[in-house]
Amino acid sequence: MVSATSQAPAGAPLVQTNVDYDPNVVIDTQNLTKVYSDFWGRSKVRALKGLDLEVRKGEVFGLLGPNGSGKSTTIKLLLGLLFPSGGRATIFGKPTTEVSKNERIGYLPEESYLYRFLTAEETLDFYGRLFDMPSDLRRERAAKLIEKVGLKWARRRPLREYSKGMTRRIGLAQALINDPDLVMLDEPTSGLDPLGTREMKDLILELKEQGKTVVMCSHLLADVQDVCDRIAILYQGELKEMGRVDELLEVTNQQQIRVEGLTKDAQAKIAEILAQSGGKMLDVSSPKNTLENLFLDIIRESQARPGARGIIGSGDDNGGR
Protein backbone atom coordinates (compact mmCIF):
# COMPACT_ATOMS: atom_id res chain seq x y z
CA MET A 1 0.00 0.00 0.00
CA VAL A 2 1.83 3.09 -1.15
CA SER A 3 0.61 6.31 0.14
CA ALA A 4 1.70 9.80 -0.67
CA THR A 5 4.90 10.64 1.06
CA SER A 6 4.85 13.53 3.38
CA GLN A 7 6.45 16.60 1.97
CA ALA A 8 9.93 16.19 3.40
CA PRO A 9 11.45 19.66 3.59
CA ALA A 10 15.06 18.52 3.11
CA GLY A 11 16.49 15.63 1.09
CA ALA A 12 14.07 15.37 -1.83
CA PRO A 13 13.04 11.75 -2.76
CA LEU A 14 15.75 9.81 -4.52
CA VAL A 15 15.41 8.36 -7.95
CA GLN A 16 14.95 4.56 -7.88
CA THR A 17 17.63 2.99 -9.96
CA ASN A 18 17.74 -0.64 -8.80
CA VAL A 19 14.59 -2.48 -9.85
CA ASP A 20 13.92 -4.38 -6.65
CA TYR A 21 15.31 -1.76 -4.28
CA ASP A 22 13.75 1.68 -3.95
CA PRO A 23 16.21 3.86 -1.91
CA ASN A 24 13.28 5.80 -0.65
CA VAL A 25 11.87 2.75 1.08
CA VAL A 26 13.97 2.61 4.23
CA ILE A 27 12.16 -0.24 5.93
CA ASP A 28 10.17 -2.87 4.06
CA THR A 29 8.61 -5.89 5.74
CA GLN A 30 6.50 -8.56 4.07
CA ASN A 31 4.37 -10.93 6.12
CA LEU A 32 6.79 -10.53 9.04
CA THR A 33 5.82 -12.99 11.77
CA LYS A 34 7.51 -13.82 15.08
CA VAL A 35 6.53 -16.76 17.24
CA TYR A 36 8.33 -17.15 20.57
CA SER A 37 8.90 -20.86 21.15
CA ASP A 38 10.31 -22.71 24.14
CA PHE A 39 13.46 -24.76 24.14
CA TRP A 40 11.77 -27.70 22.43
CA GLY A 41 10.50 -25.56 19.62
CA ARG A 42 6.85 -25.75 20.69
CA SER A 43 5.45 -22.37 19.80
CA LYS A 44 4.18 -20.48 22.76
CA VAL A 45 3.41 -16.86 21.95
CA ARG A 46 2.57 -15.45 18.54
CA ALA A 47 4.13 -12.06 19.07
CA LEU A 48 3.76 -10.78 15.50
CA LYS A 49 1.45 -12.09 12.82
CA GLY A 50 2.14 -11.24 9.18
CA LEU A 51 3.17 -7.55 9.41
CA ASP A 52 3.51 -5.72 6.11
CA LEU A 53 5.10 -2.35 6.64
CA GLU A 54 6.89 0.21 4.62
CA VAL A 55 8.65 3.28 5.97
CA ARG A 56 9.89 5.80 3.52
CA LYS A 57 12.91 8.04 3.82
CA GLY A 58 12.56 11.31 5.78
CA GLU A 59 9.37 10.18 7.51
CA VAL A 60 8.63 10.00 11.25
CA PHE A 61 6.80 6.76 11.60
CA GLY A 62 5.02 5.81 14.83
CA LEU A 63 4.29 2.32 16.01
CA LEU A 64 1.51 2.44 18.54
CA GLY A 65 -0.15 -0.17 20.62
CA PRO A 66 -0.72 -1.27 24.19
CA ASN A 67 1.96 -3.23 26.04
CA GLY A 68 2.65 -6.66 24.54
CA SER A 69 1.19 -5.70 21.18
CA GLY A 70 4.45 -6.55 19.36
CA LYS A 71 5.83 -3.00 19.04
CA SER A 72 9.17 -3.81 20.63
CA THR A 73 9.27 -7.18 18.89
CA THR A 74 8.97 -5.44 15.55
CA ILE A 75 11.79 -3.08 16.36
CA LYS A 76 13.99 -5.94 17.62
CA LEU A 77 13.20 -7.93 14.48
CA LEU A 78 14.16 -4.96 12.32
CA LEU A 79 17.42 -4.54 14.25
CA GLY A 80 18.33 -8.22 14.00
CA LEU A 81 18.10 -8.74 17.74
CA LEU A 82 15.44 -11.37 16.99
CA PHE A 83 15.24 -13.80 14.08
CA PRO A 84 11.94 -13.68 12.17
CA SER A 85 9.85 -16.86 12.37
CA GLY A 86 8.39 -16.06 8.98
CA GLY A 87 8.33 -13.47 6.21
CA ARG A 88 11.12 -11.04 5.32
CA ALA A 89 12.26 -7.63 6.46
CA THR A 90 14.82 -5.37 4.89
CA ILE A 91 16.41 -2.09 5.97
CA PHE A 92 18.06 0.01 3.30
CA GLY A 93 17.41 -3.00 1.09
CA LYS A 94 19.59 -5.28 3.24
CA PRO A 95 18.29 -8.22 5.30
CA THR A 96 18.05 -7.48 9.02
CA THR A 97 20.83 -9.92 9.92
CA GLU A 98 23.24 -7.99 7.71
CA VAL A 99 25.55 -6.19 10.11
CA SER A 100 26.73 -3.41 7.77
CA LYS A 101 23.23 -1.91 7.79
CA ASN A 102 23.86 -0.77 11.34
CA GLU A 103 26.32 1.80 10.00
CA ARG A 104 23.38 4.05 9.20
CA ILE A 105 21.09 3.15 12.11
CA GLY A 106 20.80 4.67 15.58
CA TYR A 107 18.84 2.77 18.23
CA LEU A 108 17.57 3.99 21.57
CA PRO A 109 16.32 0.92 23.48
CA GLU A 110 13.51 1.00 26.06
CA GLU A 111 15.76 1.43 29.05
CA SER A 112 19.01 2.67 27.65
CA TYR A 113 21.23 -0.33 28.21
CA LEU A 114 24.52 1.38 28.78
CA TYR A 115 27.61 0.32 30.74
CA ARG A 116 27.22 1.79 34.22
CA PHE A 117 30.97 1.89 34.94
CA LEU A 118 31.69 4.22 32.00
CA THR A 119 31.35 7.99 32.14
CA ALA A 120 29.26 9.79 29.53
CA GLU A 121 32.34 10.73 27.54
CA GLU A 122 33.74 7.22 27.72
CA THR A 123 30.40 5.78 26.61
CA LEU A 124 30.20 7.97 23.53
CA ASP A 125 33.87 7.35 22.83
CA PHE A 126 33.29 3.58 23.07
CA TYR A 127 30.31 3.61 20.69
CA GLY A 128 32.16 5.99 18.41
CA ARG A 129 34.93 3.43 18.14
CA LEU A 130 32.38 0.78 17.31
CA PHE A 131 31.56 2.85 14.23
CA ASP A 132 35.22 2.77 13.39
CA MET A 133 35.37 6.60 13.62
CA PRO A 134 38.79 8.19 13.89
CA SER A 135 39.47 9.70 17.32
CA ASP A 136 39.18 13.43 16.44
CA LEU A 137 35.82 12.93 14.74
CA ARG A 138 34.67 10.94 17.75
CA ARG A 139 35.73 13.58 20.24
CA GLU A 140 34.15 16.41 18.31
CA ARG A 141 30.91 14.52 17.69
CA ALA A 142 30.68 13.36 21.33
CA ALA A 143 31.21 16.89 22.69
CA LYS A 144 28.53 18.23 20.36
CA LEU A 145 26.04 15.55 21.35
CA ILE A 146 26.71 15.94 25.07
CA GLU A 147 26.11 19.63 24.64
CA LYS A 148 22.96 18.94 22.70
CA VAL A 149 21.44 16.55 25.22
CA GLY A 150 22.40 18.97 27.99
CA LEU A 151 24.66 16.69 29.97
CA LYS A 152 27.77 18.83 29.79
CA TRP A 153 27.79 19.31 33.54
CA ALA A 154 27.76 15.55 34.21
CA ARG A 155 29.96 14.30 31.41
CA ARG A 156 32.71 12.95 33.75
CA ARG A 157 30.44 11.08 36.15
CA PRO A 158 29.87 7.32 35.69
CA LEU A 159 26.47 6.41 34.36
CA ARG A 160 25.50 4.54 37.52
CA GLU A 161 25.07 7.92 39.19
CA TYR A 162 22.72 9.21 36.46
CA SER A 163 18.99 9.79 36.98
CA LYS A 164 16.49 8.16 34.65
CA GLY A 165 16.12 11.27 32.55
CA MET A 166 19.83 11.77 32.26
CA THR A 167 20.27 8.12 31.23
CA ARG A 168 17.62 8.57 28.51
CA ARG A 169 19.47 11.59 27.20
CA ILE A 170 22.84 9.84 27.07
CA GLY A 171 21.03 6.93 25.44
CA LEU A 172 19.78 9.28 22.77
CA ALA A 173 23.23 10.75 22.39
CA GLN A 174 24.71 7.31 21.73
CA ALA A 175 21.95 6.64 19.20
CA LEU A 176 22.98 9.72 17.21
CA ILE A 177 26.74 9.32 17.53
CA ASN A 178 27.06 8.02 13.96
CA ASP A 179 24.71 10.67 12.47
CA PRO A 180 22.39 7.83 11.41
CA ASP A 181 19.98 7.99 8.49
CA LEU A 182 17.44 5.86 10.37
CA VAL A 183 16.82 6.42 14.07
CA MET A 184 14.78 3.83 15.94
CA LEU A 185 13.43 5.00 19.27
CA ASP A 186 11.78 2.52 21.62
CA GLU A 187 9.42 4.41 24.01
CA PRO A 188 11.57 7.58 23.75
CA THR A 189 9.43 9.76 25.96
CA SER A 190 8.53 7.19 28.61
CA GLY A 191 9.68 8.25 32.06
CA LEU A 192 10.64 11.76 31.04
CA ASP A 193 9.30 14.88 32.71
CA PRO A 194 7.28 17.17 30.48
CA LEU A 195 10.33 19.37 29.89
CA GLY A 196 12.33 16.34 28.77
CA THR A 197 9.46 15.06 26.65
CA ARG A 198 9.19 18.41 24.95
CA GLU A 199 12.88 18.47 24.24
CA MET A 200 12.72 14.90 22.91
CA LYS A 201 9.88 15.82 20.60
CA ASP A 202 11.67 18.95 19.41
CA LEU A 203 14.71 16.81 18.71
CA ILE A 204 12.71 14.30 16.70
CA LEU A 205 11.26 17.12 14.62
CA GLU A 206 14.76 18.49 14.18
CA LEU A 207 15.91 15.06 12.93
CA LYS A 208 13.03 15.11 10.51
CA GLU A 209 14.18 18.46 9.19
CA GLN A 210 17.62 16.95 8.66
CA GLY A 211 15.92 14.45 6.36
CA LYS A 212 16.45 11.52 8.67
CA THR A 213 13.91 8.74 9.00
CA VAL A 214 12.66 8.16 12.51
CA VAL A 215 10.74 5.13 13.68
CA MET A 216 9.44 5.31 17.18
CA CYS A 217 7.17 3.05 19.10
CA SER A 218 5.30 4.31 22.10
CA HIS A 219 2.10 3.94 24.00
CA LEU A 220 2.01 7.70 24.85
CA LEU A 221 -0.41 8.76 22.14
CA ALA A 222 -0.10 12.46 22.75
CA ASP A 223 3.63 12.42 22.02
CA VAL A 224 3.15 10.31 18.89
CA GLN A 225 0.42 12.65 17.72
CA ASP A 226 2.69 15.67 18.02
CA VAL A 227 5.57 14.19 16.14
CA CYS A 228 4.68 11.39 13.79
CA ASP A 229 3.77 11.74 10.14
CA ARG A 230 2.43 8.25 9.72
CA ILE A 231 1.50 5.75 12.33
CA ALA A 232 0.67 2.07 12.57
CA ILE A 233 -1.42 0.70 15.36
CA LEU A 234 -0.67 -2.83 16.46
CA TYR A 235 -2.83 -4.90 18.69
CA GLN A 236 -1.98 -8.48 19.75
CA GLY A 237 0.61 -8.71 17.04
CA GLU A 238 -1.67 -7.60 14.21
CA LEU A 239 -1.63 -4.36 12.25
CA LYS A 240 -5.02 -2.73 12.96
CA GLU A 241 -4.63 0.64 11.40
CA MET A 242 -1.99 2.49 9.38
CA GLY A 243 -1.94 5.92 7.75
CA ARG A 244 -1.13 9.56 8.05
CA VAL A 245 -1.77 10.99 11.51
CA ASP A 246 -3.62 14.03 10.32
CA GLU A 247 -5.79 11.99 7.99
CA LEU A 248 -6.62 9.48 10.65
CA LEU A 249 -7.43 12.02 13.31
CA GLU A 250 -9.64 14.03 10.98
CA VAL A 251 -13.21 13.75 12.11
CA THR A 252 -14.47 13.99 8.56
CA ASN A 253 -17.99 15.00 9.32
CA GLN A 254 -17.14 17.79 11.72
CA GLN A 255 -15.40 21.13 11.25
CA GLN A 256 -14.01 23.47 13.80
CA ILE A 257 -13.88 27.22 13.47
CA ARG A 258 -11.91 29.37 15.86
CA VAL A 259 -12.86 32.99 16.04
CA GLU A 260 -12.09 36.00 18.18
CA GLY A 261 -14.46 38.64 19.33
CA LEU A 262 -17.54 36.50 18.93
CA THR A 263 -20.57 38.23 20.44
CA LYS A 264 -23.57 36.41 21.72
CA ASP A 265 -25.87 37.43 18.85
CA ALA A 266 -23.22 36.63 16.22
CA GLN A 267 -23.13 33.21 17.74
CA ALA A 268 -26.91 32.92 17.38
CA LYS A 269 -26.75 34.03 13.73
CA ILE A 270 -24.13 31.34 12.96
CA ALA A 271 -26.38 28.73 14.60
CA GLU A 272 -29.27 29.74 12.31
CA ILE A 273 -27.08 29.56 9.15
CA LEU A 274 -25.91 26.11 10.18
CA ALA A 275 -29.46 24.93 10.84
CA GLN A 276 -30.59 26.11 7.40
CA SER A 277 -27.70 24.36 5.59
CA GLY A 278 -28.60 21.15 7.47
CA GLY A 279 -25.49 21.36 9.78
CA LYS A 280 -25.76 21.07 13.47
CA MET A 281 -23.93 23.21 16.05
CA LEU A 282 -22.37 20.80 18.42
CA ASP A 283 -20.40 22.91 20.78
CA VAL A 284 -19.30 26.39 21.40
CA SER A 285 -16.46 26.75 23.89
CA SER A 286 -13.17 28.58 24.17
CA PRO A 287 -10.13 26.30 23.33
CA LYS A 288 -8.04 25.11 26.28
CA ASN A 289 -4.34 25.62 26.48
CA THR A 290 -2.56 22.27 26.81
CA LEU A 291 -1.27 21.45 30.29
CA GLU A 292 2.07 20.82 28.68
CA ASN A 293 2.31 24.37 27.34
CA LEU A 294 1.26 25.77 30.72
CA PHE A 295 3.85 23.63 32.51
CA LEU A 296 6.62 24.55 30.08
CA ASP A 297 5.76 28.31 30.24
CA ILE A 298 6.02 28.19 34.03
CA ILE A 299 9.31 26.33 33.92
CA ARG A 300 10.76 28.65 31.31
CA GLU A 301 9.59 31.68 33.28
CA SER A 302 11.14 30.40 36.50
CA GLN A 303 14.35 29.58 34.63
CA ALA A 304 14.41 33.23 33.39
CA ARG A 305 13.54 34.78 36.82
CA PRO A 306 14.35 32.35 39.64
CA GLY A 307 12.59 33.02 42.99
CA ALA A 308 8.98 32.83 44.26
CA ARG A 309 6.18 33.44 41.89
CA GLY A 310 2.49 34.42 42.30
CA ILE A 311 0.35 31.31 42.29
CA ILE A 312 -2.33 31.51 39.58
CA GLY A 313 -4.85 29.12 40.97
CA SER A 314 -4.77 30.19 44.61
CA GLY A 315 -8.09 31.69 44.13
CA ASP A 316 -7.40 35.15 45.43
CA ASP A 317 -6.49 37.02 42.22
CA ASN A 318 -8.61 37.16 39.10
CA GLY A 319 -6.93 34.30 37.16
CA GLY A 320 -4.53 34.76 34.40
CA ARG A 321 -4.86 33.80 30.83
Binding site: L79, G80, L81, V99, S100, K101, N102, E103, I105, Y107, P109, E111, S112, Y113, L114, Y115, Y127, L130, F131, D132, G171, Q174, N178
Partner: peptide, 14 residues
Amino acid sequence: LSKTIYTVVTKPVR
Protein backbone atom coordinates in the same frame (compact mmCIF):
# COMPACT_ATOMS: atom_id res chain seq x y z
CA LEU B 1 21.59 -10.60 30.86
CA SER B 2 21.77 -6.85 31.55
CA LYS B 3 20.89 -6.30 27.88
CA THR B 4 23.79 -3.84 27.57
CA ILE B 5 24.70 -6.02 24.59
CA TYR B 6 21.75 -4.51 22.66
CA THR B 7 23.50 -1.20 22.18
CA VAL B 8 26.63 -3.04 21.02
CA VAL B 9 25.06 -5.56 18.67
CA THR B 10 22.94 -2.90 17.02
CA LYS B 11 26.16 -1.15 16.12
CA PRO B 12 28.02 -2.44 13.00
CA VAL B 13 29.80 -4.93 15.22
CA ARG B 14 30.27 -8.43 13.90
